[in-house]
Simulated scan of single mutants.
Amino acid sequence: MNELFTYGLLVFTSFFTLINPISAMPVFLGLTSDMEPVDRVAVAKRSVIVTFIILLIFAFSGQFLFRVFGISVNSFRIVGGAIFFVVGFDMLNARLSPIKAKSSEIKQTIKDIAVTPLAIPMLCGPGAITNAIVLMEDANTILLKVVFVTALLSMLLVTYLVLISSSKLIKRFGETGINIMMRLMGLIIMVIAVEFFLAGIRPFLESLLS
């Protein structure tokens, strides 16, 4: 029982650190500040569900998929860093405009932004994918696999609650406050993007030099 609790705690804390729902809030706020509360909740729900599905797929078949398609984690880091940088640059220049769509288009808009950039690569980045693969390899019993899925689901529930609570920030700070926060967080996201990119490209450069 102690082993199950320890493993579950490891899964929860490691995913919380890697997914970091707090860091996803500025992008979520920037994209959904002009949406109705019900649509904002729909975006958060869909992005969390997509993240859960992707992490489960990689957890149970990640190594196989990587080998079949010749994909490396470092490639994920480079692409994720590039996407992060573009999003951060737009936020820094206040070009990440709130989504404004007609009522007939809002469902498709929710689908689009919930998948990219919120689920991929914001919530489900290279670190989270790698963590899912590694932790699932340690789950050598059915019970541990159940603990893995339960802990991951619990962590994503916390992520969902963090995202939907960000609507209170929109009301509290107003448009000017959101713009200021978006510029500051845009700068931070760009720095994170550079770290992602360098972490991904460094092994390639080292192999070329050696």
Rank of each mutant, 00 (worst) to 15 (best):
I106S: 08
S103E: 09
T109R: 15
G80D: 01
P98G: 14
I106L: 10
G81V: 02
R77W: 11
L96D: 04
M91W: 07
S104P: 10
K100T: 14
I106E: 02
L92E: 04
G80P: 02
F89G: 05
M91V: 12
G88K: 06
V86Y: 07
V79Q: 12
A101H: 13
I99E: 11
V87I: 12
V79F: 11
P98L: 06
S103V: 10
D90Y: 06
G81E: 02
I78T: 00
K100V: 14
D90H: 08
V87S: 06
K102Y: 10
F84I: 08
Q108F: 01
K102N: 07
L92C: 01
F85S: 12
L96T: 06
D90K: 10
R77G: 07
L92Y: 07
T109D: 15
Q108L: 04
R95D: 10
A82Q: 00
I83S: 13
F89D: 02
E105C: 07
L92H: 01
A82G: 01
S97R: 05
S104Q: 09
P98M: 04
E105A: 09
G81L: 01
A101P: 15
T109G: 13
F89V: 01
I78K: 01
F89K: 08
E105N: 13
V87Y: 07
T109W: 11
N93G: 03
G88V: 07
I106C: 05
F85A: 14
R77F: 09
G88M: 13
S97Y: 01
S104A: 09
S104T: 14
I110W: 15
Q108M: 07
M91N: 06
L92Q: 09
G88A: 14
A94T: 02
I83N: 13
I83Q: 12
K102V: 06
N93T: 02
P98A: 15
T109S: 14
